[in-house]
């Protein structure tokens, strides 16, 4: 399943802690993401998964701890700077430019790789490289039929695919996806799982997810969080078998098949 023979660590978080006043939302969370791997962050509501992904993406500075990307310390970089080094993210709530076409959403994402803000007389739509890249990423995310649609009218599942296409257009090596399957029908969900499996081949994906079936279908590694603490980390089989995890989160065996 995972390509464990030639490990390349893309993202490494060491003992991340985040406090909001007296509340400790994350305590000593360490996560490692390798290329070719889908790493799932699992946990009940309020476990601190979103806080964790926000620290990795730069939306939230950690109170303590270090984050390295391909060996470089990126702990103090802003979200925009992290995007520039190769970390892309999608959000839990769909976060697109609804009045733009699908193509323009992704073209804008692609344009972020070559920013020359002072060139105000060239026409954006004449930059062929950005258009070509946008089209390729839209295809890769499985949205090829919707290129010219206004993105606001797409189905929920298609909008999530669009977000993935936008992240791809930024040349991200690491994809941080916050609940990419939330609110999807089973068909949409299955096609997104296919997309994720394909993307994994050349990148590293860290995702926060609730959908149990999907989690075990795609995960190479699972980190379980409870109450802001890291409970257990390991391959799916280990997590499934873990007594501690079952007690804390999974409950009875039936809940796997809901």
């Amino acid at each position: 399943m995972s390509q464990t023979n030639n490990k390349e660590v893309l993202l490494q978080a060491d003992k991340l802690t985040r406090r909001f006043g007296g509340l400790v939302a994350n305590q000593d969370i360490s996560v490692t993401l390798e290329r070719g791997m889908i790493h799932v962050l699992l946990g009940p509501n309020g476990a601190g998964k979103s806080t964790c992904i926000n620290m990795l993406s730069g939306d939230l500075p950690p109170s303590e701890g270090k984050i390295h990307f391909m060996g470089e310390d990126i702990t103090r970089l802003t979200a925009a700077q992290r995007s520039q080094v190769g970390i892309g993210r999608s959000y839990q709530r769909t976060n697109i430019f609804p009045q733009f076409s699908v193509l323009e959403n992704v073209r804008l994402a692609a344009q972020s790789r070559r920013q020359d803000p002072w060139r105000i007389f060239s026409k954006a739509m004449e930059a062929k490289w950005a258009l070509e890249k946008a089209r390729a990423c839209i295809d890769e995310a499985g949205l090829g039929k919707r290129v010219d649609w206004v993105s606001g009218v797409l189905s929920h599942g298609e909008q999530r695919q669009l977000e993935v296409a936008m992240v791809l257009a930024t040349d991200a090596q690491v994809l941080l996806l916050d609940e990419p399957l939330a609110g999807m029908g089973s068909e949409e969900s299955a096609s997104m799982v296919e997309v994720l499996k394909r993307l994994r081949q050349t990148r590293g994906i860290l995702l926060v997810e609730h959908d149990m079936d999907a989690v075990f279908a795609v995960a190479d590694m699972i980190t379980v969080m409870v109450n802001g603490q890291l409970l257990e980390c390991g391959p799916p089989a280990q997590i499934k078998a873990s007594v501690a995890v079952q007690q804390a989160y999974l409950g009875t065996e039936e809940s796997f098949h809901v």
Binding site: D59, N95, Q99, I120
Partner: peptide, 20 residues
């Protein structure tokens, strides 16, 4: 221009533009 498109993106969702 690319500059103008970014401005419109900022109006729509500045946070998203930063994460891009």
């Amino acid at each position: 221009s690319p500059f103008g498109r970014v401005l419109v993106g900022i109006k729509s969702n500045e946070h998203r533009m930063q994460s891009l």
